[in-house]
Design a protein around this nucleic acid. Structure first.
Lengths: 301, 301
DNA sequence: TTGTACGCGTTATCAG
DNA sequence: CTGATAACGCGTACAA
């Protein structure tokens, strides 16, 4: 060891990988990098990995199941220590690949899925139901849903919304778009919803960008928030707290999710899989703020 | 080749790396991942890399020169195809390492630096001067500067601001913080500046988050923007366009910067270095919007 | 416990 | 230009 430090010896990772047939790479496959939602996950993952011998390798499949499958193949070829993927797999082939994989697999974001090995996330449908029920309790009668992109998890949030409005015997009022979410789209969706359902007195959105856009549109139209109209977003972006008024949202600890995903992987890398081995619920917190009537925090995990 | 496809042969990267003493890895060393500024760079880089045999490996040194140097060492050990680093190197050792490196090196963000090999970015000082001069032309007399984090490039923007106010014989009014930038800090900085310099009638900020926070603080204080107070940010975050009113900013094509950095690397990977070989100026565009008096776009590249 | 030799799957070199 | 063969640097199994 003294010689090691004296000569400045550093092991050759390639040789090590060749001989041992494994690498210290941890793959992190994400549907998007434009979205700051995944940015927090990446940050948590990076922070957990730093100081360990492991390396994080990021893949971006842009919400394409086909691209995702291709990336899984590429990553698996490297014999990584583990793979972190977002949610329930889109193609059968992807699921098969991950099931047969020689490494640990962590599914993040969603836990209401077929867990392949490990999972870290939350139940999106329940979170949505909880938020919408909160709006009802605050006296909003005709709650609508605004959603962009409408990927799998967004659809679950919509289901949660649907269940909540059905519970109080209300009809659902929905405006969605397949475009990527943005404040601009949020404003457009609100405009569309109000045109079709003028009686709407609150919206739950699948996403904070959309909520932000809706709040700004209300500002332009002179709609009084929260008195005559309520808004609740989803994700807990920091910025929402700074707006006038601060925007209510379902807050998710995505940094911790990324951190935990890597942590589980490293801790259990040699442990061997067990069916339904680990499914970590990171929970959520509905942060009632200025765009809704009450300010009672509802915590659940 | 028919056999390759028939048997599903895939080359072993580790063996290839061991024998050839090189890898297809491109390292991307960034000061931060929390900041959406670098997210756009990452996106551009990923998009350029996808479809090539190359792999992107991200490093995050959190604005720490020491961490950066350590990361450069780690990345260089892998014999990467190239390294992309943000700006002028902080430590002498980092600069030496990169100068002696066996691979191509691209410095991004800033071009007003000692270029080691290749550079893709813009002149931050000039961009700031341009923006502040614009505020003067629009009739604002006492322009202040708001800045958070105050890393090297932020300081250059402040220099650009200082030069512009000096040009019109004005005193500089500055409020800065070393904390990471956020809308919250932006509001605090504006509060501080107005307390010390109540005559201030416009601000240029080192960052869009800060501009956003300043605009929201003006909203809360009932300060009339843009009539009695002007605001111009820096970076060109999409969100700024959606605010009421839309916030003026210096728009930077960071996606293209990331894309180009990887592109230069791939195109020139076998070309051998030439002194001052390539320095690509991606320019900037001052987007005058609703928080300033005129709406004349000033383009420069 | 310590030491040694072989194998990992390529690349690169050198005869032919 | 083709074809054989020696590195490449580390794991690992086996012998001492």
């Amino acid at each position: 060891m003294t010689a090691v430090t004296r000569l400045g010896y550093v092991p050759n990772l390639a040789a090590s990988a060749l001989a041992s047939r494994r690498t210290d790479v941890i793959g992190l496959l994400l549907p998007s990098l434009s979205n700051n939602v995944y940015l927090d996950v990446v940050n948590g993952a990076f922070d957990r990995v730093s100081g360990t011998p492991h390396t994080l390798q990021i893949g971006n499949h842009r919400y394409s199941p086909f691209e995702e499958e291709k990336l899984i193949r590429v990553f698996l070829q490297q014999n990584p220590t583990g793979l972190i993927v977002a949610g329930g797999e889109q193609t059968m082939a992807s699921a098969d690949l991950l099931r047969e994989a020689a490494c640990r697999v962590v599914q993040i974001m969603d836990i209401d899925i077929d867990v392949i090995d490990l999972a870290v996330g939350l139940n999106h449908e329940r979170a949505a139901t909880e938020a919408v029920s909160g709006l009802h309790r605050q006296g909003y009668r005709h709650v609508g849903f605004l959603g962009a992109r409408m990927d799998r998890r967004s659809q679950k949030r919509m289901e949660g919304y649907r269940r909540a409005v059905a519970d109080v015997g209300e009809a659902d009022r929905v405006s969605t778009s397949l475009q990527p979410s943005s404040a601009r789209i949020g404003a457009d969706l609100l405009t569309d919803l109000l045109a079709r359902h003028p009686e709407t007195d609150a919206v739950f959105t699948n996403n904070d960008d959309i909520a932000l856009g809706a709040a700004l549109e209300c500002q332009r139209r002179g709609i009084r928030v929260p008195d005559t109209f309520g808004i609740c977003g989803f994700n807990g972006m920091d910025l929402l707290q700074e707006m006038n008024p601060p925007i209510s949202t379902v807050s998710i600890d995505r940094y911790r999710m990324g951190w935990l995903a890597v942590d589980r992987l490293i801790e259990l890398k040699d442990a061997g899989r067990v069916a339904g081995g680990g499914c970590e619920d990171i929970g959520f917190e509905v942060a009632w703020r200025g765009t809704t009537r009450e300010e009672i925090a509802v915590k659940e995990s």
